[in-house]
């Protein structure tokens, strides 16, 4: 198996997850770990360690750079890595704003022999894979609308987290978490033509970023989606309903390392207008439950195959990133001009 020489920039939670996925995969040689906080590197003395990202790229000379850094550094690191002829995988969001994303797109187009992938990791969750297969197989007909809720519980230190400092993060709960569901809406329905929204601070009045986004999207084909991205759910919650011409899909819960979003399952049924189930208004449902999150491994395998075998990227391309950031840009620009 060809080994890809890789570095990770940013050894917080995501950096550690990616490191584990590399070890699990076996096709990566870790040639550098970088974090400006030495404590984050204290358990990794068997790898070359760096505190400054440029130095890490220049000295380690990797084939690929994994960017797990704070949002405001992402575009700089991605562009520099591409200019140094490295393949790049970057966590979401793809920069703080659309300007950052477009800058990365320019850099990628100048270095298009190299792979650039973003971590829209939810596409690799089992329930999402099953939902996509149901839609692509046309088992339930064409999807016509989607309702999505992605919510966080918050915590005592929530107001002071870097995620709520727009200088570092670029945005609030929508950019941090709602972006995953936006990506899924695009994944299931295609590109969005119109956006209506309300961006608010309904409870956390003193933070500079929003605590709630209600958004309604419409495709050029007339499909509709709604999203409530919230950090005032007061518990972790992931729910998505997909209504199709001939049936329905419910995605509830999503497996994470903390298991705090509940059991991941998908339920679907076909419309039953003749009540063949014998129960009026209750079609026969099928439910699938999952007990293992393989998303990190599948995502890493796709990146490996793109770099080592030249396979085209299916998910998390710069074009996915640009389209989703265009939506976020439109939503944030409507702040103050709410629904």
């Amino acid at each position: 198996m060809k080994k890809i020489r890789v570095i990770i920039i940013g050894m917080g939670k995501m950096g550690k997850i990616r490191l584990n996925a590399f070890l699990q995969h076996g096709g990566f040689e870790i040639v550098g770990l970088c974090d400006s906080n030495p404590q984050m590197l204290s358990n990794y003395n068997n790898y070359p360690l760096f505190s400054e990202w440029k130095e890490c790229i220049d000295k380690a000379k990797p084939d690929a750079v994994f960017v797990c850094a704070i949002n405001y550094l992402i575009a700089d690191i991605v562009c520099y890595s591409l200019e140094k002829h490295c393949h790049v995988f970057s966590e979401k969001p793809p920069g703080r704003n659309l300007e950052d994303t477009l800058r990365m797109k320019d850099s990628f187009e100048k270095n298009s022999d190299y792979v650039l992938k973003f971590g829209f990791n939810h596409r690799y969750h089992n329930s999402i894979i099953e939902a996509k297969a149901l839609l692509d197989s046309n088992t339930l007909g064409k999807p016509v609308c989607i309702r999505g809720i992605y919510g966080k519980a918050g915590n005592l230190n929530f107001a002071n987290e870097w995620r709520n400092n727009p200088l570092y993060s670029g945005g609030g709960i929508l950019l941090d978490q709602g972006i995953h569901m936006l990506d899924l809406i695009r994944y299931f329905l295609g590109d969005i033509a119109e956006v209506f929204c309300s961006v608010d601070n309904l409870v956390w009045k003193n933070i500079p970023t929003e605590d709630s986004v209600y958004a309604i999207f419409k495709t050029s084909g007339g499909q509709i989606a709604s999203l409530h991205s919230s950090c005032i759910q007061w518990k972790h919650k992931f729910d998505m309903d997909i209504i199709c011409e001939n049936g329905y899909i419910a995605l509830n819960g999503i497996l994470t390392s903390t298991q705090s979003y509940g059991e991941e399952h998908i339920t679907f049924y076909k419309k039953d207008l003749e009540f063949t189930s014998g129960k009026m208004g209750n079609p026969i449902e099928t439910t699938m439950c999952f007990d293992k999150d393989s998303s990190w491994d599948i995502e890493i395998a796709e990146f490996y195959d793109a770099v080592a075998k030249g396979k085209p990227l299916q998910n998390g391309t710069i074009y996915d990133a640009v389209e989703v950031m265009k939506l976020i840009d439109k939503i944030y620009k409507q702040k103050g001009e709410n629904l």
């Binding site: 089992n126 026969i284 449902e285 439910t287 439950c289 999952f290 393989s294």
Partner: peptide, 11 residues
């Protein structure tokens, strides 16, 4: 991995 598959709930 898939933990369970309830083919239907019409029991």
């Amino acid at each position: 991995m898939l933990k369970s598959f309830r083919l239907n709930d019409n029991i």
